[in-house]
Amino acid sequence: MKLSRVISVMFILLFWIPIKSFALSCLVDGSSSASFNEALGTDLAVQADAPNGTIIWESQSRSVPVICADNREVGRESIYFYLNPASVSVGQGIRVGIRYKGIAITQSSGKYDTGHHSQEGCNWANCTGWRSAKFTLNFSVFIEKYGTTPTTGQATSLTSYRVFQLDGVGGLNPTPNSNLNYVLTGLNKIRFVPCSPKLTVTPSTIDFGRLSSGGGQSGQQITASRFSLNLKRDCTTPYTVNARFTPKTGSILNGLLVPANNSSVGISLFRAESNEKLAYNSWFKLTDMTGTTPARIDLFAQLLWRAKPVIGPFDAAVVIDLFYK
C-alpha cells in the first residue's frame, strides 16, 4: 500500500498599517487649560448696509505664552492655526478673523502656519531630546461684516465659536484637552439695524496755539481745548453708541498720547460734563440714541508737560471708532 503525505504550508501574512501620529500637545504655559475663552461682553448692533470688511468687534492684542510638548519626538514640526476646527457655520452677514503679524486671516477652514515650531526655545541644556517648545503667540481676533445681511436681523444663533486650535502638521489632535483652542462666546448678541449715526467732530483739528515753556514741570497742565462729537441718524431703532480713541500717530505712554516729534508733552481726553478721563484703545459708552434727535457729546483735550520742555512744533492724531449695541 502506497502512502502519500500531504504537507500543508500555512502562510502568515503580516500587514503593518501605520497609525496617524499626533505629535504635538500645545497649551498655555503654566496652565492646564486647553481653552482660551473670550466674550463679546455686550450686545452689538451693526449697520445693515455696512460695507464688507467693516470691523464689528476686535479683541485686545493678546500675548499668550505657549508650550508645545513633542510627545513622540518626531523632530522639528511646524505649528499651525487650524481655523474653525469644529467646521461649523459662524452665521450670516459676519465672519471671524485672526490678526497675526499684520495679516488678517479670514479663511474659515484649513490651517495657517504660525511660523513657530516644535523645537523653538530649546537647546540641549534645557530640553531633553527636543521634547518641548516655548514661545509667545501674539494675535488678536476680530469679527467683520461680510456677505448678505440676514432678513431676520440676527447674525447667528451660536453662543460659542471655536476660532482656532493650535496644532502640528499631522492634523487635529483628537485627545481631549491637549491643544489650545481660542473660543469666542456671545456671538448670538450680534444683530443688524437699519441705520447708523453719521459722526462729525467739531473742530476736527485742535490747535493748542503758541505755548510758553517757562516753569514747565512734569504732570503740570499747559492748556485744554474743547471739542464735540456730533451724531445724527435717520431711523428710530434704539441702541447704545460706544466709542474708542485709537492713536494714528504718536504713542501711548502712561495713559498719555505722546507726539512722535516732541515727547516733552502728552495729551489726555476727558468728558466735559463729568470730567471723566477716557482711556485710549478702550471702548466706552458714548450715548444712547432712541430717536432721530441729533446727539452732541462735549469733550476736552488736556495738554500736559511730561518732561523738561522741548521747543518746537508737535502733532498727533487719533481715529474714532464706533459700535452700537
Rank of each mutant, 00 (worst) to 15 (best):
S212C: 04
K198C: 08
L137I: 02
L184S: 14
T106G: 02
S59D: 08
F314E: 02
R95M: 07
R296K: 12
I7E: 04
D43Q: 08
R296G: 00
A155T: 01
T287D: 05
P65D: 03
G215T: 03
N71R: 13
P197N: 08
S204M: 00
L83P: 07
F164N: 08
P51Y: 01
T175Y: 08
I67R: 08
Y182W: 15
F323S: 13
G91N: 01
T200L: 05
T202L: 02
G312K: 00
Q92R: 13
P176L: 07
F22T: 00
G255W: 03
S33I: 08
G312M: 04
N173C: 06
P85M: 11
E58A: 14
T287S: 11
A279Q: 15
F15M: 07
L184K: 12
N173R: 11
N179W: 00
S109I: 00
S212G: 12
Q119G: 14
D315S: 13
F284Q: 03
K308D: 03
Q119H: 15
G102K: 02
P51T: 12
N188W: 10
V46D: 05
L253K: 00
K145Y: 05
G168V: 03
N173H: 09
K189N: 15
F270K: 09
D288L: 09
L257F: 08
G121K: 12
I19S: 13
A39W: 05
S140R: 10
S87L: 11
R99C: 10
V28L: 06
C68R: 03
K145L: 04
A224I: 04
G75D: 06
M289P: 00
